[in-house]
Structure formats: C-alpha cells, structure tokens
Design a protein around this nucleic acid. Structure first.
Length: 222
DNA sequence: AGGTGATCATTA
DNA sequence: TAATGATCACCT
C-alpha cells in the first residue's frame, strides 16, 4: 500500500509519476494484473488509480485523500479528448436527510477539491492500452458552486417532500440524479408525500458529461 | 443494506 | 449518438 499524501504537493508529485503511462505500464510497475475489459469490473480502473496515489478514505462518504480533503475521479475520455461517461459523485440521501444541508453534505465536501485523472481509451481495445492523460486539480468557481448548490437543493427539496416520483435525470445543470443500485429491484426505505412509509430505487448524484467536458477543455486546452 | 469505484446497454 | 436507466464488483 502507498501512504496517503500529507500535502497537496506530495499528491501533485505522485500524479506526475503516472501521467502519460498506459494502464498496462503502470500495472506492471505495481505488479498487478489488468482485466481484459471493464464489463464485469467497472470500478477496477478507478480503484487501481486510487491505490497508486494513496487514497485512504475507503468507502466512507468523504474525500479520497482524507488528510488534504481532495477527491479523486478518473474520467474516461477518447484519444481526441472527448468525455465518454458521466461521473458518479455521491448517493442521494433518500432517508436520513433531516438536517442535511448543502453546507454539511458529503456531495459538497467531495466536490470542493477534485483531482481529475483523465484516462484515454479506445473502444474494444484492451484496457491495458488505455493511457493516463494529464491529471488536474479543480475547485468550483463561484458560478459553479452556486449551480451545484442549486442542483442539489432542488433534488433534496423533492426528497424532503416525499416527491420521489418527481425525481428524474433531466433535472440539474451540472448534477443529475440517476439510479444507483445493484439492479432495478433494489429498494430503500422512504416516506411519501402523505407521510406513509414507502420504498424506492436508490439514486445517486452524477456529474453531467457536458460539464466535465468543459473542465477537460479548460485544463487540457485542446 | 448501503456505501465505494464506475461503465454497460437500451432508448429516444 | 447522446442521454437515461440498469448493472457489476468490492467493502464494511
């Protein structure tokens, strides 16, 4: 295991060590095997990069690098720099949302400082040929911070009212809400608009690809 | 059961 | 083909 970085500079130095490498090259350095694709191990790549950089938050709802409050997100792109997927951020607290505010929620904490690690891949090519692009740190500017707050509050207002049926993926400029579960039969407890106990599909906050595309364009300057 | 890491696969 | 809805693996 790699020790968690204690300073931002330490983290930056580590990202320089992996920038430009293919997944295969980095895996060889670390002496780990690479799955042929991500069909059955969708999170492998993200967890591999976490282990290489010393992320230590495990599955806690807090930033990956706990000592410096930085969240790590790998970002799948193609070799022309186009973002290929949305980015999962956090669970939507469908229960235990009382007292939850934008200021004290995990979603805001995670997004307050993010290390984006873009990884370029070619569809149907072996995963080991994917190449780590230049990682970059991002913090929301004022406009982005306002929009994130608004997106989050719009969703959580519906949750607080028990209007789960109103939730859909079209809401939100930056963040959207989509299912987050092992499958569509998974249910979590909730309270409906009339105060009755009910169950619903667990949801997560995801960052729209259009937004992360903007970040890539800004920081990688195509 | 419900978090973490996400991508897959079908729909519109 | 972009976007939505569904799904996979691992961890505590």
């Amino acid at each position: 295991m790699i020790k968690p970085p204690t300073t931002l500079n330490e983290l930056k130095e580590r990202t320089k060590q992996i920038a430009g490498l293919t997944i295969g090259e980095l895996a060889k350095q670390r002496q780990v095997g690479v799955p042929s694709d991500l069909k059955r191990q969708k999170g492998w790549q993200g967890q591999f990069i976490e282990s290489c950089l010393g992320a230590d938050a495990g599955n806690l709802s807090e930033p990956d690098f706990s000592l410096i409050g930085v969240e790590l997100k790998t970002l799948p792109i193609d070799f022309s720099g186009r973002v290929l997927e949305s980015t999962y951020i956090s669970v939507v607290n469908i229960k235990n949302h009382q007292g939850l505010t934008w200021e004290n929620c995990a979603t805001k904490h995670k997004l307050s400082h993010v290390l984006w690690v873009p990884i370029a891949r070619i569809k149907d090519q072996p995963l080991e040929n994917s190449r780590i692009a230049t990682p970059f740190l991002w913090q929301p500017n004022d406009k982005e911070a306002r929009q994130l707050k608004q997106d989050w509050e719009e969703v959580m207002d519906l949750v607080a009212l028990g209007q789960l049926g109103q939730l859909n993926a079209r809401m939100g400029e930056i963040l959207q809400v989509r299912p987050k579960a092992a499958n569509s039969r998974v249910l979590t407890d909730t309270t409906d608009s009339e105060g009755n106990h009910s169950q619903t599909l667990p949801r997560g906050f995801y960052m729209r690809p259009q937004f992360t595309q903007g970040l890539v364009d800004r920081f990688l300057k195509r």
